[in-house]
Simulated assay, not measured.
Amino acid sequence: MRTLYFDCFSGISGDMVIGALIDAGADPFQMEEELKKLNIAEEYTLSWEKVVKNGIASTKFDVILSRKPERLHEHIHSHEYHHEHSHSNDHSYDHEQSHILDHNEHSHSNSYSHEHHDHHDHRTYKQIVEIINEANFNASVKNMSLAIFKKIGEAEGHIHGLPLEKVHFHEVGAVDSIIDIIGAAILINQLGVQSVLSSAIPTGSGHIHIDHGIYPVPAPATLEILKGVPIAASDIRSELATPTGAAIAAVLAESFCPLPTMTVESIGYGAGTKTFKNHPNVLRIIIGEMQ
């Protein structure tokens, strides 16, 4: 059985998943064409490139929004974080770090960052479901995408005390997160994966700063998404697991276990935005045959 294993030794995020899948041999150009079925192609462009993280060659995937957001004051920043972006030396926020912001808030970022959001990018759960249903993806891609969005929507609704149909996404409704979730489903389907397994998920430690105050890591929505999933302790003072990354693993992984007995066929490393002094911030995926 063709199996994909998420080796999340440095956590997991949506852009790291796509970077790792591309690095393992998936075709990003085919994904780019498939994503045009969403009819939002004018809102973004995609980029991917090889970078080196603490000695490991990996693929960094980015969504570049067509509309440049206003450069408003920073809502999230912690001295614990070490940010890196391959295109700029400006301050940059790790993808999805602002997932628990109110939908009227903005993150401050450089013009290339994967974390861009403005008020035009907010979409309700219902709107996202409609976009996916109208896109004419194959059943596998459609069902994976809808299940991941539902997992996040239910978690956000629980945290904010709202029923699913009333959930108005800020972070997850932004274009880059829509691309990450559906793009991951497209690439996993493209690779002919029949089963998904994962390691335990390290969530990091420390705190994140938002307008509502100081929140612990893992953030509330991320922890809610990871109910029933084994999480791993980590001394790294940063947010390692984002809501989208957590939801991809929580929905797709049939079990959480050490690396299983398998014949390895391909390996991919997806680069995260942050850089740590003694720790390569990459997601490793291993694809192979299990008996």
Rank of each mutant, 00 (worst) to 15 (best):
S145C: 00
G204L: 02
V193K: 02
G157C: 00
G288H: 06
N54M: 15
N189D: 13
Y44G: 01
H82Y: 14
Y269K: 11
S88C: 10
H209E: 15
A139V: 15
V229H: 05
L4Q: 07
F61A: 03
G268H: 02
I56N: 09
L197P: 01
L164I: 00
E134R: 06
H99I: 03
H91G: 11
S198L: 03
I208Y: 01
E70D: 09
Y125T: 01
H209A: 11
L21Y: 01
I248E: 09
G206R: 02
A219L: 13
M290N: 13
I18P: 14
K60N: 11
P260S: 04
D180C: 04
G245K: 07
A139I: 09
G11D: 15
D211G: 14
S88N: 13
H85G: 08
A271D: 12
V167N: 01
L226M: 10
T222K: 01
L65W: 10
V282S: 08
E105H: 03
L164R: 01
S195V: 03
E84L: 14
S88Q: 06
A200W: 15
I132M: 02
H212Q: 08
E115M: 14
E84M: 15
H103G: 06
Y93E: 12
Q97M: 14
E42S: 08
D94G: 10
I56E: 10
E74P: 09
I64L: 08
A249D: 04
L162A: 12
I181G: 02
L101Y: 05
N104D: 14
P202F: 10
S199W: 07
T244R: 05
L191M: 14
H91K: 07
I210M: 06
S195P: 01
S255N: 15
N110L: 10
E34K: 06
L283Y: 08
T261G: 12
L72T: 08
P258G: 11
D62W: 15
S195A: 02
Q127K: 00
E34T: 07
M31K: 03
V251K: 00
F256Y: 12
I267E: 08
F169D: 05
V193C: 09
L38F: 02
E49N: 11
I210Y: 07
G268V: 11
N278M: 14
L191E: 04
V63F: 05
P218S: 07
V63C: 12
H170A: 01
W48T: 04
F149E: 00
P220V: 00
D15G: 05
L187I: 11
M290R: 15
L223R: 11
N143M: 06
N133S: 11
Y269R: 12
E105V: 03
I40E: 11
A250H: 06
Y44C: 02
G161R: 00
M290C: 13
G25E: 02
E239G: 08
H79A: 14
I76F: 03
L197E: 07
P69Y: 01
S199M: 05
Q291K: 12
Q291F: 13
V172T: 10
K142E: 10
A24Y: 07
I210H: 13
A184V: 09
L72Q: 04
M144Y: 04
A135Y: 02
I56C: 06
S140T: 09
P69E: 01
W48H: 07
E80T: 06
S10K: 05
E154P: 04
G213L: 12
S177D: 08
H207F: 14
G213Q: 09
K126T: 09
H119M: 13
A271W: 15
K36S: 11
